[in-house]
Write a protein that binds this DNA or RNA. Sequence first.
DNA 1: ACGGTATTTAGAAAAATATCAAAATAGCTC
DNA 2: GAGCTATTTTGATATTTTTCTAAATACCGT
Lengths: 94, 94
Amino acid sequence: MPFGDTFKALSDPARRQILELLKKGPLSAGDIGSHFDMTGATISYHLKVLKQADLVFERREKNYIYYQLNASVLEEIMLWVSGLKGGGTDAEGK
Amino acid sequence: MPFGDTFKALSDPARRQILELLKKGPLSAGDIGSHFDMTGATISYHLKVLKQADLVFERREKNYIYYQLNASVLEEIMLWVSGLKGGGTDAEGK
DNA sequence: ACGGTATTTAGAAAAATATCAAAATAGCTC
DNA sequence: GAGCTATTTTGATATTTTTCTAAATACCGT
C-alpha cells in the first residue's frame, strides 16, 4: 500500500510483462504462466506481489482465478513522476 | 538504459527521496548525504544507480560534484504507465 | 465423497541489493 | 608538491528477492 510497494512491484520485468498481458483483458493464473518460462509457483508469487501493490485484483470464477488490472493505483505513479518533472524552481532546460 | 533499469532505480525509497531533493535544484553528493542516515559510500552507490538509469547527471565544479535531475527519462515512464491505463480491450500494439 | 485440475503456500537455495569501513582517487588551495 | 576536503571504489557482510520442488488448499464435475 505505501506506494513504495508499487514501484517495487513494477521493478521486475516479469511483473511488468504480466501487467501488459492483463492490459488486453483478464487472464487466469495459468494463462499468464503459459507466457513465461517459470513454474506456476513463481507466477503465483509475482501475482501476489502485484496484488499487494494493488496493481491487480482477482476474480474467482469456476475453477479459475482471473487476474485483472487495477488502473487506479497507476494514477498515483503518474502523479509522482509528473511532480518530479514539473517541480523545478526556475531552470527549464528541456 | 533498458528502461527496466529506470524502474529498478525508482524502486528504492532512498533513491526516490534523492530525486525529490534534486527537484528543488542541483546538490552536491555531500549535501544529499546530509539528509540521510547513511554513509557517504552508500549515497555514492545510490547516486551511481540513478546515474546509470539516466535519472540524474553530474556536473563537476570546484571540489564538488553536483547532481542534477534528468527529466527526459521520466517521460518514458509516464508513457509506459499511461499506456497501461489507456489500453482497453483493443489498445495499440507496441 | 472422490478424483482431477488450478492455484497457492512452505521451505530452501541461489542471486541480487543495500550497507558499511577502509582504502583510493580527484581536485582544490597554499 | 603537501595537505585538505569531497567523493568514489573495494571488499565484505547482512538483508531482500527470485526461483524452485514438494506439499497443501480450493473448487469443480460426476
